[in-house]
Design a protein around this nucleic acid. Sequence first.
DNA 1: TGCGTTGACCCTGGA
DNA 2: GGTCAACGCA
Length: 758
Amino acid sequence: MNLLESLNPEQCAAVEHPGGALLVIAGAGSGKTRVLTARIARLLANGVLPRAILAFTFTNRAAREMRARIGAVVGVPGSAGGVGRELWVGTFHATCVRLLRREAEAAGIPRGFAIYDREDQEAVIRGLVKKLELPETAFRVGTVLARISDAKNELVGPAEFERVAASPHERRLAEVYGLYQKELARNGALDFDDLIGVTVRLLHDRPDVAERYGQRFQHVLVDEYQDTNHAQFRLVHALAAVHGNLFVVGDDDQSIYGWRGADLSNVLEFERAFPGATVLRLEQNYRSTGNILRAANAVIAHNRARKGKTLWCEREAGARLRFALAEDEFDEARRVRRFLEDHVRRGRRLDEAAVLYRTNAQSRALESELLQQGLAHEIVGGVSFYQRREVKDLLAYLRLAVNPADAVAFWRVWNTPRRGLGSAVRREVEAVMSGRGVTPVEALRALVREGALSRAAARGADRLLGVLDELATRLEDPVDLLFMRLLAGTDYLRHLESLGEEDCEDRRANVEELAAAAGGFAARGEGALSDFLAETALLTDVDRLAEGVDRVLLLTAHNAKGLEFDSVVVAGLEEGLFPHGSALEDAAELEEERRLFYVALTRARDEVLLTAAATRRRFGALGGPLGGQVSRFVEEVPAELLEREVSPALAWQPRTGGARWEGGGVGASTVALRRGWSEPVREAPGRSGRNRTPEPAGRRGAVHRVIGREVYHEVFGRGIVVDAEDAAGDLKCTVRFASGTKKVMGRFLTGGSDGDPA
DNA sequence: TGCGTTGACCCTGGA
DNA sequence: GGTCAACGCA
């Protein structure tokens, strides 16, 4: 296969670019992966050595696929040896791990450093908040971590954070940040952000190292450049500075990771950062039908912060997009399921369809419908495989074997399975740790040796140390053998059974899958235990997706990036959900939501179904319902491209700036559902609401109808009702105003558009 | 120390 | 509606 054949002129220009900095603005479905692959193949064909090429991809999966394609083109079979090993293709994180393992000494970190995921980070922060006796409300673990992560993405260390702190709270945060870094260092651990940050620091502090890698990687390529953050930009800059051969591909309209520091100015100001840079544009779409593309173009045109481009295609117009307004999330799930059945009826495979949503929580209703109806599916994301409790437990043992300083791993497993070790012993171990400056493993060993423990505790400690010592002496064994030793040594499977949980079988299956993963890793002969552990830390559900399994995927729009399907459902298109409520009051965040919707739409080749639900429960049946307005994004799709199906129980009236539904339907369906708790939830599929006369809306209905509504208040101005409750013949509304969220009685509010008191 | 119950928090997104 | 930590009791 010749990758250069059948490239269009713009693609060709990119692939043949002589060198220097090049930015390729590549629209959705414009063949950017092909261009990147062809570019690398071209470089190799021109005599560039594989070891002189470094390519960053967004997912491990993309890296694997790219390596395979390049291998096929340049005729090197497999990934082992030759091109596969010499050519560096990987995500930012995986690449940094690889570099840091080689340069651990120069970077001042242990070679077997652990990689802390979110859960590990939380354990560290929780310990600090407790130790410093900080108020847990003001220092919520998630918030603290988010602030630290933001700082790291901007390459701001604790000292700098302290310097710019604007309040006592911020100074306290700086302190926590500093102690967090100390704790990670003591544990021999790096968090995800550190992987990038420490590499950048290494290249900055050690010009000799920077020079070495700069000389080696004569060509640096970056995919999904629009989602790089400042730290990643600096990394790329440092590596490419020597020769300036930087080839980046991105699409400002698909930038969807602003919340984790992605900096669109990396794209928008590329030419300033790299003087003399060339910019090329790929605007021909090879993926979607004309209608889908027109819809996507129309929607994204509402964004102001963009370079501006219009995709075109040669494909036929195809079917119109469909929009279904459902009564609630269960009705929505049924409509989705019927759409999928149609897809199969058209002779397509289920794995050529996907259901996309904004939040992972939405998967529940969808999954239960698909389960009931026996439609094969797979949920991607949420709690991923390597985050399952049993998987993390077992991995924690392996982590300890490689790095006994890893206190988070130690405390995770020291009494799992139960060994009679509790909080009393823990306090003693911690005292020895801080008193003598030793690892938790050594502290425990010392306590045993010195006879400081009760007989029962000493026996438990002996068992734990026995397992850890056995692993430690066999570090060079193949990973799968080591894993079997671990299972036997801890009797972990019996521990699982002893828990007597309902999902015992699932957990057992996960342990077996982990064993299989270890076996696969060993068979590939790709290296040490620490490499296996890094892989488990960095692989995501998307990376692990199997090819050729005939099932529909359920996943977030974020996770769908880079994938494509014949048929795509975008579910939950309601104001407050998609676009998400947290983005409604910020123009920039709203534009990011729109880009996310654009990404979702452009995953589709042939058929699109958009769905919304008039009511939707949060936190299960007990939480308040969400809902009120169809997403503005649906309204931004030109009407002639959209085929609307509305549940007959809902009187639906489109208006400018977002459609609303009114009348008894919403209230009635909610009432019916509430009643239906102990009864069959709903009538047979396919007939929902068709022959039903809507009941008159009671006060319940009134409550549900005001939520999401735009209102006006004499003092506070315009706001959005986020919640409401009955109060003495009126509604007590919780309203989000620009100045903050307040509780206001309904009689003080006027409706935003219809003037009717809410 | 082990175990069951209660109650808080949760549900933007993810390497 | 699910998870997890704190709490109280055996």
